[in-house]
Deep mutational scan, measured.
Amino acid sequence: VGDQVLEIVPSNEEQIKNLLQLEAQEHLQLDFWKSPTTPGETAHVRVPFVNVQAVKVFLESQGIAYSIMIED
Results as ranks from 00 to 15, higher is better:
A54Y: 15
S11P: 01
R46E: 02
L30F: 04
V5I: 12
F58Q: 03
L19N: 00
H44V: 15
T37L: 10
S11E: 13
V57G: 10
V47Y: 01
A24M: 10
A65H: 13
Q53T: 10
S35N: 09
E23I: 14
I68P: 03
E71D: 12
S61T: 11
D31H: 15
F49C: 10
D72G: 09
A43Q: 03
E71R: 05
V55P: 00
T42G: 05
V52W: 13
F49G: 11
G63C: 05
S35I: 14
Q15D: 08
V5T: 08
N12I: 02
E41S: 08
L19Q: 00
I70E: 10
M69Q: 06
N18Q: 14
V52T: 05
E13M: 15
V47R: 00
F32K: 02
V5H: 08
G2K: 06
P36Q: 02
L20S: 05
V45W: 02
L6K: 00
D3K: 06
E23P: 05
T38H: 07
I8F: 05
N12S: 10
Q29F: 09
A24K: 12
V55Q: 00
I64V: 03
D3H: 14
I64K: 00
V57M: 15
D72P: 10
K56A: 06
Q15T: 02
V47I: 09
K17I: 10
V1E: 14
L28A: 03
V5D: 04
G40A: 03
N18S: 14
G2Q: 11
L20P: 01
M69R: 05
F49D: 05
A54Q: 09
E41L: 07
D72Y: 15
R46L: 09
E71I: 07
I70M: 11
I70C: 14
T42H: 08
V52K: 04
S61P: 01
E60S: 06
I64W: 02
I8Y: 01
P39E: 03
V1H: 15
A54E: 11
P36S: 05
F58W: 15
E41C: 08
E60V: 06
I16Q: 02
S61G: 08
A54G: 04
E26W: 13
D72K: 10
L20A: 07
T38E: 09
S67R: 11
P36H: 02
E13C: 12
K17G: 07
I64Q: 01
I68G: 03
R46S: 07
E14T: 09
Q25N: 13
D31P: 03
S11F: 11
V57H: 12
